[in-house]
Each structure stands twice: as structure tokens, then as C-alpha cells.
Amino acid sequence: MTFSGDSGTLGALADLGEADEAEARTPRQRGKRFGRRRRREIGLAYLLILPSLLIFGIFVFYPFFRNFYLGFYKTPPFPGLPTRYVGFDQYSNVLTSQDFVDSLKTTVGFALLTVPAGIILGLLLAVLANQQLRGVGIYRTIFSSTIATSVAVAAVIFGTLFNPVVGLLPWIGIDPKPPILDNPNLALFGVAIITIWQTLGITFILMSSGLQSIPDELHEAAQIDGAGPVRRFWRITLPLLSPTIFFAVVVGSIFAFQTFGQIDILTQGGPIKRTNVLTYFIYKTLRQDSNDGKAAVLAIALFAITFVLTLIQMRVLEKRVHYGR
């Protein structure tokens, strides 16, 4: 359960591999002597797993695979008419449509606006709050405080702060026309700021625990060798923190692709679709257009992106980021 522990997901699979080999040998040897006992154990195991498997089957795997099937059928323009089999046409039509390409660009743009800035800020706060200073605990609590806010809470707070009438931004001189969240060029940026603030607490906590896992001796040794704080940060802290940072980049990107609440409350994908991120696009296709076929294809695209990001994470973390050259 630590960043540098050796018991990660893949490690666990390796353990299981050994267990499976052992299992392949034992049943035949033990089978006759402990037949009934062993059968009871197997029965119990399946009983224990069953509740989870039922939920996964109905609410994860069935809807997941059904997307591919739904993608083959075109939803009729009017409700009540039968769906029509169109094969892969719908896939190619939706995935090459301007709306999809724009939505993808918007989502990637959103990830680029939120993830690096969020991590740099979180790291800055973590480094500052990791100093040996009296009363630094209070600052730690404050920096992690936004974890108590949900997406909806953050969206409503900032929606009002950005408001041209009651908000504070116009008062300090930031008063673009049209206002930030109605401005095609600024809306995504505004939503990004809200998201960075809302996720700052969790990023801070993540970066702090990464920092705390770096042994003090390394810093002390470097200090004795005459390395200043800046040099120590670039040569020790950052390399040793790279697995944590990498984790934050991947998970942050996955979350960015699932961004929804802020958009739903503040911009509804607008103005002129400039904040139409992928998850909101799926929601709108499903809810407003009642177009299940198209929504299913979009969902598959979202899955593919998440999948690739997760694979990258597994591959790179497996190699331990800070040893990689």
C-alpha cells in the first residue's frame, strides 16, 4: 500500500501464477485424501465471490459488451420505429464526424489544461508544506481541504464567483465580454480552473505522501556533499517522486476524460460546443437525442482511450519510472 512497495497489481498476478501452478499439482495428489474437504473449500470460494461477480456481470460486463452490439444498430429518428442494422457504418460515421473530432480535441485540451498545472501546483504545495516548520500541520490541512468539496460544490462556488453580476472577478478587473463561462474562447479555461482547484486537495495529499516516502538520509547526504535545496529538488526529490507524478498524470488524464459534473452545471457543453467533452457528449447523445446506438459508439471510444492510458501506466510503472533512462 505504498508507492514503492513491491506488491502492485502485476506483482499480485505473479503471485497468483505460482499459486495456480501449485494448485495444478495438488488436487490430484490431495484429491483422494481430502476430496470432500477440498470440494467444500471450492464451493465456499465461489460462494464468497458470487455477490461481486453478479454485480460485475449485470452492471459492468453486460453493458460493456452490449455497447458493441448497440453500435451496429442505428436508432430511428422517431421513437417507436424499429432500429436498423447498419454494421460498422455507424462506427465509422460517428468516429469520423466533426462533432466527435471536436469533442476529442476539447477533451484532450481540457486534460492538457488541468493535469500538468494541477500536478505542478500540488507538488509546489507539498514541497512547501513538507518543511520542518512549527505549525506546518495547519497549512497541510488547508492545502488538502478541497478534498471535502465535490465537483458540484466547486462548480456552484466558482460559477457564482465568475458571475458578471454577483461575482468577484469583474470587481478585480477581470471582466471579459462575454463573461468567462459564456465566452467561446474562455469557457474551457474557466472550467479547467475550477477543476484544478477542486482536485488540488487530492493532488496535494498524493504528492505529500510521495515526498514522505523519500528517505531523509538521501537529503542529508546530499546536503553534506554541498548540494543546495534547488539542486537537491532536481536531483533527488523529482527523480524519486517520478512514479508518483507519473501515477498522477495517468489517473488525472483518465479523470479528465470522465469530466462531467462541472460541464453539466456550468456550460452544458457550450458555448458553441466549446466545452463538449467526451463524457458530456455521451450524456447528451443519450439523454437529449435518445440515440443509444451513437452513444454506445462514443462510449467505446471513451473506453479505448482509458484502456490505452491504463496500459501505459502498467507498462511504465512496471519498469519503475526512476530507473528508466
Partner: peptide, 11 residues
């Protein structure tokens, strides 16, 4: 690997 957002159509 399956974000919940992907399953809403059928769920």
C-alpha cells in the same frame, strides 16, 4: 478498466 461512464447506455 471499465469506467462507469461507459456502461450507462445499457444500465
Amino acid at each position: 478498466m471499465v469506467p462507469f461512464e461507459i456502461t450507462i447506455v445499457t444500465n
